[in-house]
């Protein structure tokens, strides 16, 4: 509670929504570029390129989105840490987010850059999409639980 009251973020009513906009654009870039790789793994788009080409072309943009998420997210958290820390939906989101990031930079990356069979690619794409959808649902439900 002390942190929330002392935080200059809470001084202006415009800072939080501005951070939210940054968060939305950032997550759209990150999740969207990863989804594009997943769609390629599933054979739904960009079939004139290999999955490896799509993945390496988009990797810097995934990272760009992550930078804006990692800038805006912790700042929003700091506006009311007690609420977020105890919020079940926030806890769910963080678990999904940690798993999604870990998965993305290990197995997902390896398979996208040209490892494994088509079946494995489909399985990896499904896991990836599910984890990121979990992050989105967890984020939205913070305001509703």
């Amino acid at each position: 509670m002390f942190v929330a009251e002392a935080n200059p973020l809470n001084a202006s009513p415009l800072i939080f929504p501005a951070l939210e906009c940054m968060h939305i654009v950032g997550f759209a870039v990150t999740v969207g570029t990863i989804a594009l790789v997943d769609f390629r793994l599933l054979g739904w788009g960009m079939r004139r390129q290999t999955t490896g080409e799509v993945a390496s072309d988009l990797a810097p943009w995934t990272l760009f989105g992550l930078v804006s998420i990692f800038f805006s997210g912790p700042l929003m958290f700091s506006s009311d840490p007690d609420m977020y820390y105890l919020n079940r939906s926030f806890q769910f989101k963080m678990v999904c987010f940690a798993l999604a990031i870990l998965f993305n930079y290990t197995i997902h990356r390896k398979v996208a850059l040209g490892g494994g069979s088509e079946g494995l690619g489909i399985a990896v794409a499904c896991v990836s999409l599910l984890l990121w959808v979990g992050v989105i649902f967890g984020g939205i439900f913070i305001a509703f639980v």
Binding site: I24, V25, F27, A28, V29, V31, G32, T33, A35, L36, W61, W132, V133, I136, F137, G139, I140, F141
Partner: peptide, 15 residues
């Protein structure tokens, strides 16, 4: 949440 999921896909395509 589905609206936002769509935004991630649609937004990334637009970008």
């Amino acid at each position: 949440s589905l609206h936002l999921t769509g935004i991630a896909v649609f937004g990334a395509m637009i970008l």
